[in-house]
Design a protein around this nucleic acid. Structure first.
Lengths: 231, 231
DNA sequence: CGCGAGCTTGACGTTGTTCAACTAGAGTGG
DNA sequence: CCACTCTAGTTGAACAACGTCAAGCTCGCG
């Protein structure tokens, strides 16, 4: 139960990605020489589901969402803050297309690392490969956790969850300026815009949060946690 | 759209795991000498969420489910047929406990490979590590696909999906003996037992499937596919 | 023969969606 | 400086999908 209580739906832990520290001078240079840094503005598609995966992505600045688009609309798999690798799943040899899209929530800087170079380094440096495995797994576990939340919690729980995650893992403050629209919040917590609004209103009425313009302040974090766990 | 149409909720592709072919004689022996094969009977827990991950699992025979248990009940992440590796996600260093449970659907034989030996081989053999990355990714992508289905399709679509998956990927026949109870089917397609029954009845009435005892025969696979995609 | 697990059915309630209307603020051009 | 429009936000009422509950059924097994 204590274990289960930690199931959350947001993003991977706080730490920046450290795997590049394991490269030899030569390998680091090889990667350096085969990457470009590109800026994306709010709302832009960084990579598109179904296109050939030619690069691995490293987000140096910004905030992005990773999502699957299908006939029934879009599902956000996870959101990723800066200093994290993104499309590692693209390493999958079998079908070398991106299995998802990545879109910028805010202006973002992304390093595109040539995928064949990345693969080469992996197959030369087992310690690095091992770190990459860990990173992939951490991401997968996080997404499974989100899977659990979206499919098993009801909407109050899901929304509470997202608010907590934004506060704890993205902004790292109890009071933060919400950069997302209601619609984006809705997509994140897997419900309609109208519902998000109604629930935020309820949260305000119950004195769980305070809202001024775009700023959200968490007033009763314990209760919010309870709602996230059992609602 | 053609891409999206392939989103399904079941299990990873048809092929058996081939990664062990990449080992040197010595490495293969090292693994051989550090594994035990254990039989589990129907319903038994093969590994338990939250316990220390001491082994990587290889399913030689049987059918298992991988699931997360939490305050809101159990979520099946995926089901795995024989000749596949299972708990690769347990390689994740950060918290070396199983992030999920694995339970046998039917009598199953499992090889338990010592995790430190497995890790050792990975860090010595980069090609092998690379194959492991591919396997992990293939599994993750499959689970993401299931995530999409469970959270975005309505129940008719989900059930159609599961029936198709069982037929195509597990039993590999259009007519098969269903080894699962209604309750298990319900858990798999993310709804209640009662609903599964009602929907199976509807499918029968609409001449999509035929049922005799535990045997299911698919009669109109095209329509079933359509329901899976757009329902 | 009777017990129990799994299966089936119907009535009803809840959650969350859909739709339609209305408001507020930001940007634009006359 | 004021209409004008556009988008985001908000609200309420009607509705559908699905879960819950309660009851009865069936079939295998001791």
């Amino acid at each position: 139960m204590t274990k289960a209580a930690r199931i959350n739906s947001c993003t991977v832990g706080l730490d920046r990605c450290t795997c590049f520290d394991l490269l030899t001078q030569e390998q680091a240079e090889l990667i350096e020489n085969n990457l470009v840094e590109v800026e994306f503005s709010k709302g832009e598609t960084i990579c598109k589901q179904g296109t050939f995966a030619t690069h691995v992505l490293y987000l140096t600045e910004g905030l992005v969402k990773v999502h699957i688009d299908g006939p029934q609309g879009s599902l956000i798999l996870k959101i990723i803050p800066e200093e994290h690798l993104i499309a590692l799943t693209a390493l999958f040899e079998g079908n070398s297309v991106f299995p998802f899209s990545v879109t910028a929530y805010v202006g973002s800087k992304v390093r595109l690392i040539d995928i064949s170079v990345f693969k080469k380094v992996i197959s030369e440096n087992a310690k690095f490969a091992y770190e990459i495995i860990n990173t992939i797994n951490a991401n997968a576990i996080q997404t499974f956790s989100r899977f659990y939340c979206l499919s098993h919690k009801q909407s109050y729980g899901r929304l509470a969850d997202i608010i907590l995650c934004l506060s704890e893992r993205i902004y790292k403050q109890q009071k933060f300026e919400l950069l997302l629209t209601r619609k984006e919040l809705a997509e994140l917590s897997g419900m309609t815009t109208e519902n998000v609004i109604r629930m935020l209103k309820k949260f305000r009425e119950d004195n769980l949060i305070e809202m001024k313009g775009k700023t959200i302040k968490i007033k009763n974090i314990e209760l919010l946690r309870k709602i996230s766990n059992y609602g």
